[in-house]
Computed example of a mutant assay.
Amino acid sequence: MLKVGITGGIGVGKSVVSRMFALLGVPVYDSDARAKWLMRHDEALRQELIGAFGHETFTETGDINRPFLATLVFNNLERLEQLNSLVHPHVGNDFANWAASYADTPYVLKEAALMYESDAWKQMDQIITVYAPLDVRIKRLLQRDPHRTEADIKAIISKQLSEEERMSRADHILYNDGKQLLIPQVLKLHAQLSAAPASAK
């Protein structure tokens, strides 16, 4: 069974592509959703977060205090790295356990925005990068998140790995630029990955 990572910057359409693979019957692990779940339910991780950031990390009902954490880490690289260093190992272990339950599947997908920053790529056999040009990404994000300004979006993108670096490190690139049809690209890659031997790198 191949472990295939899927990544790309904000607004490129990673989740859309992941849903396409899921419709083809491919098991898909959503790193962001699982990270949020683990922060809420994994007691060891909760205690690590409280130890690092204080009890204000969680609300009185036990939910993640997202505004507090966002304020803490958005413009503080050291605090952001500290948060990621606590969460990512738990996500990595969770993914390994999850993937083990699909041993008879040709391949599984792990969707992760921080594939390289979190070292999640080291668990993968192959990496897919979803690409879209900057202007297309900004337009999509303004439509999806009307409360954000173009300056907000550019600030987020500036903190992410460059598309050039992602593309140079990827085994496969899917172009979601509005010019090339996406579904045929996904179908072709699905056929390729389904036929690939588990040892392929």
Rank of each mutant, 00 (worst) to 15 (best):
F58V: 05
G62T: 14
L80S: 07
Y29H: 05
K110W: 01
E150G: 06
Q143P: 13
S31C: 11
R40K: 09
A132F: 03
N65P: 00
E165Q: 14
P106V: 12
I156C: 10
E165R: 08
G62C: 05
Q123M: 07
L72R: 02
E43D: 11
I128R: 05
T105C: 13
A120Y: 14
A100C: 07
N76L: 01
A155D: 07
A35K: 04
K110P: 04
I138M: 02
E117I: 10
L45R: 00
A112S: 07
L142P: 13
N176M: 07
I153Q: 00
Q47H: 03
N75I: 08
Q82Y: 01
N65H: 06
P146S: 10
P133H: 04
D135M: 13
I127V: 13
G92L: 11
R148T: 05
I157N: 01
I157F: 03
A120M: 15
V136R: 06
R79M: 03
Y102K: 13
L114A: 13
P106C: 12
D119W: 02
E78I: 04
A112V: 12
D30Y: 13
H147F: 08
K154R: 14
F53A: 01
N93D: 11
V108H: 09
E164Y: 12
V136M: 06
E60V: 12
A120K: 02
Y131D: 02
A44L: 05
L69P: 06
A33K: 15
Y107P: 11
I128T: 05
L142G: 01
A44G: 15
T129C: 05
A44V: 08
I138Q: 00
A155E: 09
D125T: 09
T129M: 00
V136N: 10
H90N: 08
S85M: 11
F58P: 01
L114H: 09
T149M: 11
P67H: 01
L161M: 15
E164F: 13
S162W: 07
F74A: 11
E56M: 09
N84T: 10
A52R: 01
Q123K: 09
L141P: 09
L72I: 06
D119S: 14
E164L: 10
L80Q: 13
R137W: 07
R79A: 04
T129Y: 00
I127Y: 04
E165L: 15
W98I: 02
K139I: 03
